[in-house]
Design a protein around this nucleic acid. Structure first.
Lengths: 105, 105
DNA sequence: GTATTTTGTTACCTTTCGTAACTTAATATA
DNA sequence: TATATTAAGTTACGAAAGGTAACAAAATAC
């Protein structure tokens, strides 16, 4: 069986460090840069990079509020919200099968 | 909201290059090293590494057949087969939302 | 003019990844 | 006996991705 290019692309997207967590974070609603960053230990550099990638893929939109200091809010598009099924499946599997602090026996 | 350690661990597992594709490949049934490798352009070095990680997590089992030349077969455990829900969700999302060869508008 | 705050960006170093040559082990062939 | 064959790795080395911490921009308050 040869691999479907769409699935390959999805895998390469989600198979990047932090991407899943960024999407999961945004499933709770629109958030600004600093809020996402506070959710897990990603560096500012990488968060910028990941958000740019997700924006390029039409998964996230970026809105700048010209306040002082500036506020930038990131929101999932419909395409992004559809990833809820994937994130949900991961959470379900994690709760069913993972033990933290040790390896599987 | 603070992140559940199980979900964090799952994300860090699946958020590694090739891991999702290795699991997807093995969902079709047990396969030997070379068969998995033929499924997508992963290097032997990385495939060894990923399979070792998945084995350490109890997601995959490794069986050596002392034939000539040697045959090594990898099989998903029940924990591994449970990832079918995750892989399935990714495939579904990919078919619903991705276009190959161009970016989202 | 200086301080403050958020959202990046840059420089620099470390870790991970990719490639290609090599190793091992058991047999078959010359 | 020597050489070839084959699958499954392993190793060395250069390239790409990731982490850290200092810096920049922009607009306002002091």
């Amino acid at each position: 069986m040869n691999l479907c290019p769409k699935v390959e692309k999805a895998m390469q997207l989600l198979g990047k460090r932090w991407t899943g967590l960024v999407v999961k974070q945004l499933l709770d609603g629109p958030q600004r840069f600093s809020e996402i960053k506070a959710g897990f230990p990603i560096s500012g550099k990488l968060l910028t990079e990941r958000l740019k990638e997700l924006e390029d893929e039409g998964i996230v939109t970026r809105k700048v509020y010209a306040e002082v200091p500036v506020r930038v809010e990131y929101t999932l598009t419909e395409k992004g919200r559809a990833l809820q099924s994937v994130i949900g499946a991961i959470e379900h599997w994690a709760h069913d099968w993972l033990e933290v602090g040790e390896h599987a026996q």
